[in-house]
Amino acid sequence: MKITEYIAFTIDRFPKGYVFTYEDFYDEVKKKEAIIKALNRMADSGKIAKLSKGKYYKPEETPFGELEPNQYQVVKDLMEEDGKVTGYLTGYSIYNELGLTTQVSNTIQIGKNVVRPKLKRGKYTIRFVRQKNTITKENIPLLQILDSLRYIKKIPDTTIQKSTERLKNIIAELSGEDKQSMVRLAKKYPPSTRALLGAILEELGDSAYTEKLKNSLNPITTYNLPGASKALSTAENWNIK
């Protein structure tokens, strides 16, 4: 089978919106330059679409036009290394998914232990947020919630009160084990995040998890989160104003 035929056959088997590079074919075809030329020809002819230099995707056509890849596909290579998870979607990318806002942003934020300068990829600006905890597949949903608590003032098109109410509902659905893990992970977050998490857990009647959070805070420090007290009757106990 010719290189172009092999590439076309392989692409046909990719799901719509899947982002790929020449490396997706490299195990079978050892001619890197030939692969890149073939992919560029296919992009020029409209058979595939180009996301950014060296990155392509299989577009999905709808009655409303061509769909772009989802944000995970756009940045998946930045969140994994040698089969190990090294990053996760956070910030604007996750606020919408968690029901905290209806706004969709062209900025993709990634949590990583080691950050790097921002970059552009297609229409997206990709920024990195430092995560001090070890990142695992299991704790990513908890880190995303904690990040939302940390940056609650920056969630667009909403209020702190509404965001607090929504996050309270999300945390209420977690298992006791997850709540315990969240308290442990919160130790590496700023005091304001720990205070807000503590107030939410206390509001939910989960005081068994709050002692460690309370002990980690300076009792005379106050946290300025306007509107949080309207969603949490326990806000004052945690010096949240």
Score class of each variant (00 low, 15 high):
207 S>Y: 02
154 K>M: 11
172 A>Y: 08
103 Q>G: 01
169 N>K: 13
143 L>G: 07
140 I>H: 02
188 K>W: 12
182 M>I: 11
188 K>Q: 15
151 Y>T: 15
120 K>Y: 06
183 V>A: 08
223 Y>C: 12
180 Q>S: 15
118 K>V: 01
107 T>W: 05
122 G>L: 03
160 I>M: 10
108 I>R: 08
112 K>N: 04
131 Q>L: 04
139 N>V: 08
186 A>R: 02
126 I>S: 08
154 K>H: 14
108 I>W: 07
156 P>N: 05
107 T>P: 11
220 I>P: 10
118 K>Q: 13
194 R>S: 11
224 N>D: 14
109 Q>L: 03
118 K>S: 14
191 P>R: 01
119 L>I: 11
99 G>W: 13
111 G>L: 04
227 G>C: 08
104 V>N: 12
93 S>V: 00
96 N>G: 11
181 S>I: 06
171 I>H: 05
194 R>D: 10
97 E>F: 11
153 K>N: 14
141 P>W: 04
223 Y>M: 13
183 V>L: 03
155 I>S: 07
189 Y>F: 15
127 R>D: 12
208 A>T: 07
114 V>Y: 04
189 Y>M: 07
209 Y>P: 00
225 L>N: 05
200 I>V: 07
218 N>P: 13
109 Q>N: 06
175 S>E: 10
175 S>Q: 07
101 T>F: 13
117 P>Y: 10
196 L>V: 07
217 L>N: 13
166 R>W: 03
91 G>H: 03
187 K>A: 15
164 T>D: 02
189 Y>D: 04
220 I>C: 09
193 T>K: 09
133 N>T: 03
212 K>G: 07
152 I>M: 04
213 L>P: 05
97 E>S: 14
214 K>N: 06
202 E>C: 07
102 T>Q: 11
135 I>N: 04
173 E>M: 11
191 P>K: 05
93 S>R: 00
176 G>P: 00
200 I>Q: 04
127 R>N: 14
105 S>W: 03
128 F>N: 05
131 Q>K: 08
214 K>T: 11
109 Q>G: 06
116 R>L: 10
185 L>N: 02
225 L>V: 11
124 Y>K: 08
93 S>L: 00
200 I>F: 08
161 Q>P: 00
218 N>H: 08
211 E>M: 06
105 S>P: 10
220 I>Q: 14
179 K>N: 09
129 V>G: 04
137 K>M: 07
172 A>N: 11
